[in-house]
């Protein structure tokens, strides 16, 4: 087993001090983040959820310097708000301070989506079992994250709940093993699963309900450096009270479906076209509609055999 130092080697005080001072340097799959924040909720969540991640230092190469800060000026007294920064740049509007950790997670996704153009990046969950990987590209509202969490709790290795990283040179999938973001009743569904789950703080987003993050399994994080060849692409759609239905997708449709769910296909131009062609050639493609957890788990179980 690996002898890498993880965040678990630090106690709560040490984590919050590093976050507060020069920043906590942590490996997230192929990327290295330096995270800075003086907010207690960030320190809490990071300790709870990122414990198995590899701890690095400022003497390592760092991809992204991210921070969550309170804005300067009068506003912070009126209604406490926080900003995400990628280095000196803040790409988003400020959010209520209670959403600090979700904002950090979104911000880290943003960094990868904006800069990691040596990968084809898909808005997609990715999991692997028995060396067989499934890519689940989906738009919002398809139930992708819930499905991803269900699979991750049933023997599948989590590569990512939000983003597929396909190496343009090797065509292999890279893993991030980041926490899975869940909303509203999804949190209950996952908590009702008959297995041990660790969640971050549950945050009330006044507009949209609640949000929380499921800690990735230790095994998934330990195997984060193992790349895997793409095996299947499944376009999932949750449809209440419907029996499971799986259809083979014709390749041209799958091609366009992959493009639609890509963060950087158009920026990659020719390299993107070649990567998607190669991806479609090497995978089986399905569309899936489902409502029952048992049925959908059985389908994926069979896929992995």
């Amino acid at each position: 087993m690996s002898t890498k130092t993880t965040l678990n080697s630090l106690n709560a005080y040490e984590i919050s001090q590093q976050l507060r001072n020069d920043g906590l340097v942590v490996a997230v799959g192929p990327f290295v983040f330096c995270i800075k924040s003086s907010l207690a909720s960030i320190a809490n969540n990071v300790q709870r959820i990122y414990g198995d991640f590899q701890l690095l230092s400022h003497h390592d190469l760092i991809d992204f310097y991210v921070s969550i800060k309170k804005p300067k000026g009068l506003r912070r007294f009126i209604k406490p708000q926080i900003n995400f920064y990628c280095d000196d740049y803040s790409p988003f509007l400020p959010l209520p301070a209670s959403q600090a950790f979700p904002l950090l997670e979104w911000g880290m996704n943003w960094c990868i989506a904006q800069h990691a153009h040596h990968h084809l990046l898909l808005h997609s969950a990715v999991l692997e079992k028995n060396g067989k990987s499934v890519i689940l590209p989906a738009q919002s509202g398809s139930g992708k994250s819930t499905l991803c969490a269900l699979l991750a709790l049933n023997g599948w290795r989590l590569l990512s709940d939000e983003m597929a990283l396909i190496d343009l040179k090797s065509n292999q999938l890279h893993a991030l093993a980041r926490p899975i973001s869940l909303k509203n009743e999804s949190i209950n569904i996952i908590q009702q699963q008959n297995c041990e789950t660790i969640f971050g703080e549950i945050v009330d987003d006044t507009n949209k309900g609640t949000i929380s993050h499921l800690k990735p399994s230790k095994v998934s994080v330990q195997q984060v450096e193992n790349t895997v060849a793409p095996y299947a692409i499944v376009f999932p759609k949750y449809q209440a009270k419907q029996p499971i239905q799986v259809n083979a997708t014709d390749k041209a449709t799958a091609f366009m479906g992959v493009i639609e769910n890509s963060f950087n296909y158009s920026i990659l131009a020719e390299a993107g076209f070649k990567a998607v062609s190669q991806l479609i050639d090497s995978t089986q493609c399905h569309t899936l509609t489902y409502s029952s957890t048992e049925e959908v788990l059985a389908f994926f179980e069979e896929l992995a055999h």
Binding site: F92, W106, A113, Q114, T146, E162, M163
Partner: peptide, 25 residues
Amino acid sequence: TKKEPITMNKVNALDPRFHQIDEEK
């Protein structure tokens, strides 16, 4: 309101944060 600088290739619709917020279920 904050004035956003206009850049040519914003991935607005694909902004991961944007999806996260809208993701139901």
